[in-house]
Design a binder for these strands. Sequence first.
DNA 1: CAAACGTGGCA
DNA 2: TTGCCAAGTTT
Length: 365
Amino acid sequence: MNNRLLKADYIDIYAFQQDLLTWFNEEQRDLPWRKDKDPYKIWVSEIMLQQTRVDTVIPYFHRFIEQFPTIAALSEAEEEKVLKAWEGLGYYSRARNLQTAVREVYEKYGGVVPNHPKEIATLKGVGPYTAGAILSIAYGLPEPAVDGNVMRVLSRILLITDDIAKASSRKVFEAAVRELISHDNPSDFNQALMELGALICTPRSPSCLLCPVRDHCHAFNEGKQNELPVKVKKIKKREVQLAAALLTDSEGRLLIRKRPDKGLLANLWEFPNIELNLQYVSEKEQLKEAINTKYDTNISITDMIGQIEHIFTHLTWNINVYQGKLDRVIEDKDLKLVSLEEIKIYPFPVSHQKMLKQYIEAAGI
DNA sequence: CAAACGTGGCA
DNA sequence: TTGCCAAGTTT
C-alpha cells in the first residue's frame, strides 16, 4: 500500500460519513443486541457473530441472555450449561473462552468490561475485531472494528487490492478506518460499515445502485466492484472414516463420553467412536475391540443403523453408525450411562445429534 | 503465517 | 452437488 492517506483523499471524508450514517440511521435492521449498549450483551453478540450469520445468531442470543443475563450470572454458571446453550452454534471454544474472559472481568475488573484497548485485548477470545467492536459500539471510542464486511466495503470504496485472506492485510484496513471514522459517532460508523457490507455491498452482485455511498466508491466509479475484494483461498480438506457405537445397557441407557478439553469439539459429549484404518479388518470387529480395550468392558455390536457425512470447514467425517449392547462400564466424570431423558442436558455436536436421531428411529422409541 | 476450529444457507 | 460464504481467534 502507498502512504498517501490510503487513497482516502479520493473521497470527501465528512460527506462520506454523513451519507453512511444517514443511511444507517434509516435502514439499519432491528437486531436484539441493538436495544441497548450493555457492554456484556454487545460482547456476547460479537462472539456469537464471529463467522456466523445474523439469522442463525438471533435465537441463540435471546436464549443465552435469558439464561445468563449478566456477567455475574455467566461467571457463576457451569461450563456444561454454557456449552449446552451454545450447542449447534459451532466453534465451541468461543463459548469456553467467553466464560473464561467474563470470569476474569468479574474477578479482576469488578464486573465492568474494560474500556481500554490494551486491557480488553488481553481477554480470551477477544481479538482485534471484537476489541474494536466493543470499544466503539458499547463505549463510543473511535477504534477500528475490521471484519470481513469492513474489508470488503473498504476494498471497494478505496480500491484496496491487498489479499484480505492474509492476516497482514487487516492493519491496512484498520489504518483506513482510523482515517475515515466519525469521531462524533464511532459506534454507528463501525456498525454502518458492517451493515452496508451485509445489506448492500455484498460479496457477490453488490447492489451499487442502492448504495448510499456509491458516489464515494472508487471501485464503482471504475466499474471494478465485482473484482474486489481480492481474496486468495486455499483449502485442503481431509476426509476421515469413523465408526461409532450407540451402546445400551439392560436398562436402555446409552454410553456417552466427554471429549478432551482441547482440539475439535472440545469438552462436548459424544458416542464412543474410532477412526477406521485397517480396511482388511471388519469395522464391527475394530469397533468392538477398540471400545472393549479402552473402557475395559465387554460389548457386542449388532446392526449398522445408519451412515452420516458431516462436513467441517477443514475436514469431513464419514461415520458408520452401529448399535450394540454392553454389560457394564466404570462410570467417571468423562464416561456416563444416561437415559434418553438424562441425555438432554449434555451438549453434543451436530454430528452426534444426528446419530441419536437415527438411533431413536431405528429403535422405534 | 498457515492451519485448526462448526454449522447451515445458498447459487 | 460442490464450493463459497457468514460481525474471527488461537496456536
